[in-house]
């Protein structure tokens, strides 16, 4: 069975656990074995959060450094913090959103991107907060936008999980109006990603 590792990083409260669950359920629909390792409790409160999604046969929960095929980063500083988890020539889809920890001194957006660009990765930058705000009125669905975009740019991910399976997974996570908004956001981000991918 093929293995594929997705690392989800960001700040607690950005919908990382939901995103992990959406991908996990999508794998189940496809009949793929998967382990989605989350962190709950205090670590969620505005802290740095990592969710490991490992597709493969009876995968262990934590992925080693250098093994992520695709990193989905909801925030810039967190993308930089975990970049060494990415495989050489792996994909990094990052939200163009810098949210510094309070009272901290931190590198600028230009510095962060400058460094990331010199790494052996396929870097995809997307303003997921804006996309989410356009469709839902708030950045709350930036996680869905990131996923849609990542599917657009990454052919291997697309082969594993198509838009239709993600749709089905969304149906298990949301209902009514919110579901419809998320579905259209997913599509919009996907199209943008496809354009970039070509």
């Amino acid at each position: 069975m093929r293995s594929y590792n997705i690392l989800i990083v960001g700040v607690g409260g950005q919908g990382l656990l939901t995103l992990g669950s959406i991908i996990g359920v999508a794998c189940t629909i496809r009949g793929l074995d998967v382990a989605v390792a989350e962190v709950h409790g205090m670590s969620q409160r505005g802290g740095s959060v990592v969710v490991y999604v490992r597709i493969g046969e009876e995968p262990s929960p934590i992925m080693p450094v250098g093994s992520a095929d695709h990193m989905l980063a909801l925030e810039l500083i967190e993308a930089a913090r975990y970049i060494h988890y990415v495989k050489k020539m792996g994909h990094v889809t990052v939200n163009d959103f810098l949210w510094p920890p309070p009272l901290s001194i931190y590198p600028s957006r230009d510095q962060l991107f400058g460094e990331m660009k010199t790494r052996d990765i396929k870097l995809h930058v997307v303003n997921a907060n804006d996309m989410s705000t356009k469709i839902t009125g708030s950045p709350i669905s930036a996680n869905i936008a990131i996923l849609g975009y990542a599917l657009g740019v990454d052919e291997s991910l697309r082969e594993l999980l198509g838009l239709d399976v993600i749709d089905k997974s969304l149906e298990e996570h949301f209902r009514g109006h919110v579901l419809e908004l998320n579905k259209s956001l997913l599509r919009m981000a996907f199209k943008e990603g496809l354009k970039r991918g070509e």
Binding site: G46, G47, S48, G66, H84
Partner: peptide, 24 residues
């Protein structure tokens, strides 16, 4: 030694700040 290579970690000045959990 792990049989694969990872992407070089990012070191900057100022460094990437820690992000402990905080009050919402």
């Amino acid at each position: 030694k792990l049989p694969w290579e990872n992407v070089e970690p990012i070191k900057l000045n100022p460094p990437i700040p820690p992000r402990p959990p905080i009050l919402c």
